[in-house]
Design a protein around this nucleic acid. Structure first.
Length: 372
DNA sequence: CATCCGTGGGT
DNA sequence: TACCCAAGGAT
């Protein structure tokens, strides 16, 4: 066993720790929708939604999702636009496409039953070490580690571990540590207990150590280092990208939208037509007119400034100058473009920056007395 | 291993 | 305002 592990476990009362944690979890756990089921499909859905996403954000999405796709088979048979719409606003959209790909594989290869073998399950798309361990332990009560940010923070403090939790290698260290201390009789409440502790007590800022059920086991607390842990390398600054975009309405009163490429940022989501813009280039607007004319075959009648939308993603920032364009379409437009009635817009999934743009458009209609 | 991939809330 | 953070995974 490696040095850090050996050191961490020295003088650590494993069984007392397990009991204190599991008892606290059973007494204090929140009543969350995915804790009311044993269906591995539903637990799987919850775990994917919860990746890098807060509980309060997930709850309404989870409920709506399972209302729409109650069974694994229902979700396997759904159309891409349907599943993206169900995920709209939740972010990290490849999660839902990977989830469907994985679910379809389960439907076809495993006769619709979620594999109980962790290696088979983790081989599915979108299922990494954390999700595999979480579903195996929570749905099937298997003693597998499920190391997320909570677990690394809580265990960094309990064992006073100063490894950088931003480094991939560190997650493996914590997996080994969990394997040593997990309660083999109660893997599900143990794993969920650590995460619940991280969410309710052992929080990133100002942990409530005086309320902590495992305080007496916490080396970081005893050393007065709990607020110094975990150690995490800071990430670098994000870049800025500038766009010019438009709400385009045709002479027939329809709106022009566009499907984004299958890969990359906001993959397969819908958007309003937009092109990259060069800062300080006076020809931006003229280039924009040309793009609309050439790509859409549109004669522009009016073009008025709408708003500027700023949106910060995980690694890039957008600044979109938005316009409202009205024009004549001479030909049928081609994929990836689509012209739809306003009443049909709601069935297409738009990422947040374009939702902001549409809201601004609706507001101008209301303010100018043209709204409904 | 570093970077890409969303969004909203907290300080 | 400018960060940080939240039940990560793919490439």
């Amino acid at each position: 066993m490696n040095e850090i592990l050996h050191n961490a476990l020295k003088d650590f009362h494993i069984e007392d720790f397990q009991k204190s944690l599991v008892n606290w979890y059973e007494a204090e756990k929140r009543d969350l929708p995915w804790r009311r089921t044993n269906d591995p499909y539903k637990i799987w859905v919850s775990e994917v939604m919860l990746q890098q996403t807060r509980v309060d954000t997930v709850i309404p999405y989870y409920n709506r999702f399972l209302e729409k796709f109650p069974t694994l088979q229902d979700f396997a048979e759904a159309q891409e636009d349907e599943i993206l719409k169900a995920w709209e606003g939740l972010g990290y959209y490849s999660r839902v496409r990977n989830l469907q790909s994985a679910v379809r594989e389960v439907a076809e290869i495993y006769e619709g039953r979620v594999p109980e073998n962790i290696d088979e399950f983790q081989a599915l798309k979108g299922v990494g070490p954390y999700t595999a361990g979480a579903v195996m332990s929570i749905a099937f009560n298997k003693p597998e580690p499920a190391v997320d940010g909570n677990v690394m923070r809580v265990f960094s403090r309990i064992f006073s571990i100063e490894e950088d939790i931003a480094k991939p290698k560190t997650r493996k260290l914590f997996e080994e540590l969990v394997k040593e201390v997990i309660d083999p009789e109660n893997p599900s409440p143990f794993n969920q207990g650590i995460m619940e502790l991280g969410a309710l007590i052992c929080t990133p800022q100002a942990p409530s150590c005086l309320l902590c059920p495992v305080r007496e086991h916490c080396k970081g607390f005893h050393e007065g280092k709990e607020t110094m842990l975990p150690i995490k390398q800071t990430k670098k600054k994000i870049k800025n990208k500038k766009w010019i975009a438009a709400i385009v309405m045709t002479d027939t009163g329809e709106f022009v939208i566009r499907k984004r490429p299958r890969t990359g940022l906001l993959a397969s989501m819908w958007e309003y037509p937009n092109w990259e813009r060069d800062e300080g280039d006076a020809r931006n607007l003229e280039t924009f007119r040309l793009s609309l004319k050439e790509e859409l075959g549109m004669d522009i009648q009016t073009m008025e400034p709408l708003t500027t939308v700023k949106h910060v993603f995980s690694h890039v920032e957008w600044e979109m100058d938005a316009y409202v364009v009205k024009g004549l379409l001479h030909h049928k437009i081609n994929s990836p473009y689509l012209q739809v009635q306003e009443s049909q817009l709601a069935q297409y999934a738009f990422p947040v920056p374009f939702q902001k743009m549409w809201e601004a458009y609706k507001n101008t209609l209301v303010n100018s007395g043209k709204g409904s």
